[in-house]
Design a binder for these strands. Structure first.
Lengths: 199, 199
DNA sequence: CACTCTATTGACGTCCGTTCAATAGCGCCA
DNA sequence: TGGCGCTATTGAACGGACGTCAATAGAGTG
């Protein structure tokens, strides 16, 4: 119990510190399993300061999730040159590597999505729309996935699968190499589109 | 505010009533958004009675989720006759129809899974293992999906996709018929297995 | 009709999220 | 260098919700 004297940071740094800590703490606990006391102690601040910055526990969680979502989207932007398929593959590879590298942040994002609030789900939904939209945006001429209602649905399903694949693989990679995983992830999209009833 | 006089039920009936109510209430709220007060009032009982039956709010949630999971598994058991592929298709179709019919129950199961406790996730994990296991169990000779580590992973991913497809389709079925959905769901498994690196 | 068994209650204690007036770092100016 | 002011930070006090337990009252039985 090191009682560090009050340290005064700039609002930006403090906010950043609290968000990063939140991402870490919310990766393996749910929101109501995380007490403000623990969070405050872990950050070396008082309970009150958290409310000064975020207003409520709920709002803090939203800020944490948005933080993680923005980071994910920023770090997986597709390259601007190359042919459509190639750009998509690069982006998907970046996604896989991001999830592997930022496991905790990604898990806290996903946990918030399914388990939480309406507004939390909205944040996740926006993030995933951005990711899914790339498939159609990068593939303007419909070479890989023609833009139909059925394929919109398929891409949603495919991205859910990719998420599950990566998280499961991280959890237990036995018998499957990173290359195998990437082959499954990238190969499955055209494969599924191939069996989807067209218009 | 109808103040009904105290009604005395058999423990089985009371338990059943509370679980059914819990499934309904937990479909659209998370656990900490559901107060014991609301639950008790909705059920027409006192707060204390809930603790008599389940011991804690957490334990109540677990019972609700287990209730939903058992129901799902029971109502989608594959038939015992027919060839492997046919039995699987029947089971998957039953799964889709079950989710459509018991939307609330299924949502409260899924929400609990990603958002919740370790033990909640374990319950969901068991349920899904049971479902996924059918693919290999019903397909003993590996006609559809040979039992390899990569394919174990693929089936996990596929079932996550199926879940997302069905829930998204229920949310917005425009432009996709039930037959389309079933075609995507059933066709995608062999398609993905086809692009998966073998052993 | 009384009696017993047990399902059910409701008041109480405690913990935790939230508020707000008071406090004290840190840069700035003389 | 030293004091001053701005504002980041605190901690005690409040309220509401979870959880406990001895008391109560339905429902079947003799």
């Amino acid at each position: 119990m090191t009682t560090t004297p009050r340290t005064r940071l700039s609002p930006e740094r403090r906010r950043e510190q609290l968000l990063d800590l939140g991402v870490r703490l919310l990766a393996h606990r749910s929101l109501d399993e995380l007490s403000i006391d623990l969070l405050a102690e872990e950050a070396g601040i008082s309970r009150g300061l958290l409310y000064h910055y975020f207003g409520s526990k709920q709002a803090f969680h939203e800020a944490v999730v948005r933080h993680a979502a923005d980071d994910l989207i920023a770090q997986t932007t597709p390259p601007t040159d190359g042919d459509p398929l190639e750009r998509l593959l690069t982006s998907v590879t970046a996604y896989v590597d991001y999830v592997v590298a930022n496991h905790e942040g990604y898990v806290s994002l996903v946990k918030a999505a399914a388990g939480g609030n309406e507004s939390l789900r909205a944040i996740y939904e926006d993030a995933r729309s951005a990711l899914n939209g790339r498939v159609f945006r990068e593939d303007v001429h419909g070479e890989i996935v023609p833009d139909t209602p059925a394929n919109r649905l398929v891409v949603r399903g495919w991205s859910a699968m990719v998420e599950e694949l990566v998280l499961s693989w991280i959890d237990d990679p036995r018998g499957v190499t990173r290359a195998d995983l990437l082959a499954i992830v990238t190969g499955s999209l055209p494969a599924i589109v191939g069996v989807t009833p067209g218009r």
